[in-house]
Amino acid sequence: MAHRHSPALGRRAALARAGGYGLVAIAGALAARDAAATPDSARDWLSALAKGSPQEGKVSIKAPEIAENGNAVPVTIGVESEMTEKSYVKALYVAADGNPNPGVASYNFTPLAGKVEVQLRVRLAQTQKLVAVAEMNDGALFIASREVKVTIGGCGG
């Protein structure tokens, strides 16, 4: 007979348990969000440095489509500009949206650089997007992004 009563109890217990799991799952998701950069935090990091709304164009990112080792992913970033006193690239900000922190590097240039084409090697913890924003001397912003698939992450756990 005890068996007869158990379905209701069982369902209640199961619901309570499900609720509990739900909360744990949400907490887990929040903790994960805290520990890693997201597309939003990468955007926040960039917009704190480059104020305004960037347009597509002028910036190009070259990076391997698939990086076997996330410890050193070669990246080339170029920005179209005459690099004269009248018109030059003032700054270039590079972010990654899946690392523990979104920032990668911030460049400043003077017209003396002649051409903006920089190379660097980046640590990528997982498959993610690289985002670059260029700031011109007149304040115009240009943005480009590129996804890199990472087989082995590069943050050393």
Binding site: A105, T110, R121, R123
Partner: peptide, 27 residues
Amino acid sequence: TFNGKPVMSIKLDPAVSANPYLSFFVR
């Protein structure tokens, strides 16, 4: 700097690889 005049500068974050390789241009 080239002849004391600034060309470029970089602020690096930990996402830059060990033994940082950097390249750029100067006129």
